[in-house]
């Protein structure tokens, strides 16, 4: 319960920040994808199941704010959260750069997937524009990771269930 509440607050904050502050501070005309970032970081910290659930919830919340078929972002982020959680188990480096690289690369892959699903539903984003946004959003998210990783980790830790899971 506490966990759900904590994550809801994180996702809501991400959505509000993205549509207000970061609407004015763009990187090459592109906003960061903060809900992607939150999903990836949570998957990185908590594993594939939590990553998938956080991605689904956050994606659905973002979908409800967009004027398009709901569920596309939820689908993207469910898979992204699961994938990053799985990938994490096979990476053993303790390097602090890992989350930055992981967030950047995963965001780019996620946005590309999202664009393709959207295209299949009849919304053509333009291939060049899609690639541009995917790359820039990845770079922007990577830049923001050192800033946002610590607070997300704090929320994740504070609201973690007492049971110890080994994923």
């Amino acid at each position: 319960m506490r966990r759900a509440l904590g994550w809801t607050v994180v996702v809501l904050t991400a959505l509000v920040l993205q549509s207000t502050v970061f609407a004015q501070i763009k990187l090459g005309g592109t906003k960061p994808e903060l809900v992607y970032l939150v999903t990836i970081v949570l998957a990185f910290l908590e594993g594939p199941a939590s990553g998938a659930v956080a991605g689904f919830g956050g994606g659905m919340a973002q979908d409800f704010l967009l004027n398009q078929p709901k569920g596309i972002t939820a689908l993207t982020l469910t898979l992204l959260g699961y994938g990053v959680g799985l990938l994490r188990q096979y990476v053993v480096t303790p390097s602090p750069i890992l989350p930055v690289v992981l967030v950047g690369a995963s965001t780019t892959v996620g946005v590309l997937f999202y664009g393709v699903v959207r295209f299949l539903l009849g919304f053509n984003p333009g291939a060049l524009y899609l690639i541009k946004v995917a790359v820039l959003a990845g770079v922007y998210n990577a830049i923001l990771t050192p800033l946002l990783f610590p607070p997300i980790r704090r929320v994740a830790k504070a609201t973690r269930a007492n049971k110890v899971f080994r994923w």
Partner: peptide
């Protein structure tokens, strides 16, 4: 297996949402 079940059901829910809303 639980994790996989969770992910599969979430993906199904996403697809269902997309279809219904579309």
């Amino acid at each position: 297996r639980n994790t996989r079940l969770v992910v599969i059901s979430l993906v199904m829910m996403s697809l269902l949402t997309i279809t219904l809303d579309y």
